[in-house]
Amino acid sequence: MGIAIYLLTFAILLAGLYAVVAKKNVVKIIVGAAILDYAVNLFLVLIGWRTVSTAAGAEGGAAPILAAGQSGRQLLASAVDPLPQALILTSIVIALGVTALMVALALRLHEKYGTFDLENIRRLRG
């Protein structure tokens, strides 16, 4: 696994970026922005993931809850880092706000221009 999963995250990020930059349809751009957000959230989850090598092979991803009889050090070694998950929660809420605003703007744009095609939504000079 190792690096491959990070490369996958990066590929998702690039896919989102491509949609945002190259697509001409407002709805596709919004979807692209959502993909971009998910890629970063996935990256943050992966940062917090921990594995330990046991006799049965790599094992990990325990919930960060201290079990009876477990020392803090053991927990630290096997449990996932809860902090990035807290970050993602915040980041998802922000992304929700931004996406809602984007959709609202897209609806208003459709009212004014009658189209979702950015080729036809350009009254402002670059």
Binding site: V20, D37, M102, L105, R108, L124
Partner: peptide
Amino acid sequence: CEAEELEAAFKYLVLGTVGSTLILL
């Protein structure tokens, strides 16, 4: 909520989101 203002806001919003994503990364 005029046509030009919505267009400018959408452009600003999309590029702003790309910027924030990079910052979070």
